[in-house]
Amino acid sequence: MPVRVVEGSAPSQRSGQDASNGRVLPPYSLLSVGRAFAGTQNVSSLQKDEAWRVNVRIQGCDLDNGYLCGTMEALNVPLADTPVVTFWEGELIDAKNYTFYTGKWEATPDDDIRHWSKFPSFGPLLSQVEADGGKSLDLSNYPFVFMRWKEQYFVNVGIDCGLTIAGFYYVCFSCSDGSINGFYYDPNSSPFQKLELKSANEGLSGFTFSSYQLQ
């Protein structure tokens, strides 16, 4: 949910580990409903350095159809009196429902490759993705889960809040430590705004959302 600023080795085949108790879990199980993440989004521009604190919670997940959804809360947005919450829907890159090529939201195949290549874990997959978008890849046991997140609407503020949700996020989830990295894409916003999140479910000190009703 950035401010609109216009400016010119072989993969390991292992499942994720739940950091709270050391149990080895299937990769997608770490993206279950209720999972929470906290971190920052860097929205720096040529004019200034800026980062927002961000909370994300998964609200729905349908692995068979490569779908998940959730809420994103930005806490220290300039000119906003309250945290700004958006609802997003996600596409799991599973080579069945969705490939690495977006095919919408103004993203070209070159844009896709450029953004996915920002993730070191994408390197071993690059040649196959360039060949067919990754349709022939088996990602079921890959230790990273790739996704796209598209914010659909503002939950608690109006569209005149000074932010844009016209773009979407390229996202990489690490099954080994539960961390999330992402890059925001919108041709009319500052490029490669980085999202960095860590799991907030472990221990007794997490964060909580205010109550919002999703329409």
Rank of each mutant, 00 (worst) to 15 (best):
L197R: 10
K198Y: 04
N42W: 05
G8E: 05
A51P: 05
F209Y: 11
P2Y: 04
S32V: 06
W52A: 07
V77K: 11
S199L: 11
K104N: 15
I159T: 14
G66A: 12
M72L: 03
S174W: 11
M72Y: 01
K48P: 00
G103E: 08
Y153W: 03
L204D: 11
R53P: 05
G133I: 06
A80C: 13
A200Y: 06
G162I: 00
D94T: 13
Q213N: 15
W149F: 10
E106K: 15
G34C: 09
F154A: 08
P187T: 04
S29Q: 15
T40G: 09
R148V: 10
C175Q: 03
Y170G: 00
K150Y: 02
A51K: 13
F37G: 11
L197W: 07
I180F: 05
W88A: 11
S45V: 11
Q59H: 09
F207G: 05
F100I: 02
L92E: 04
F100D: 01
I58P: 06
E130M: 15
D18M: 04
L79H: 12
F122N: 00
V3N: 07
S199T: 07
W52P: 01
A74L: 14
G134F: 11
Y142N: 04
P120Q: 10
S210F: 02
V155M: 10
E89K: 12
P27T: 03
M72K: 12
V171A: 00
S205Q: 14
Y98G: 10
R53K: 14
N76G: 09
G203D: 00
G103C: 02
N141R: 11
D177C: 14
C175I: 02
R14D: 12
K104L: 12
A80G: 05
V84H: 03
S29P: 05
V43K: 02
E73F: 07
F100S: 02
V157F: 06
S174D: 15
C69L: 03
F119K: 03
F173K: 01
V43H: 02
M1G: 13
P187Y: 11
R35L: 03
S176F: 04
F192C: 09
M72R: 12
L46G: 11
A10W: 04
K104E: 14
S210I: 00
N42E: 05
T164K: 00
L46N: 12
S12G: 15
L197T: 06
V157H: 09
R53L: 13
L137I: 15
V5Q: 03
Y185T: 01
Y67V: 09
R57I: 15
C172K: 02
L204Q: 08
R57W: 11
Y184I: 05
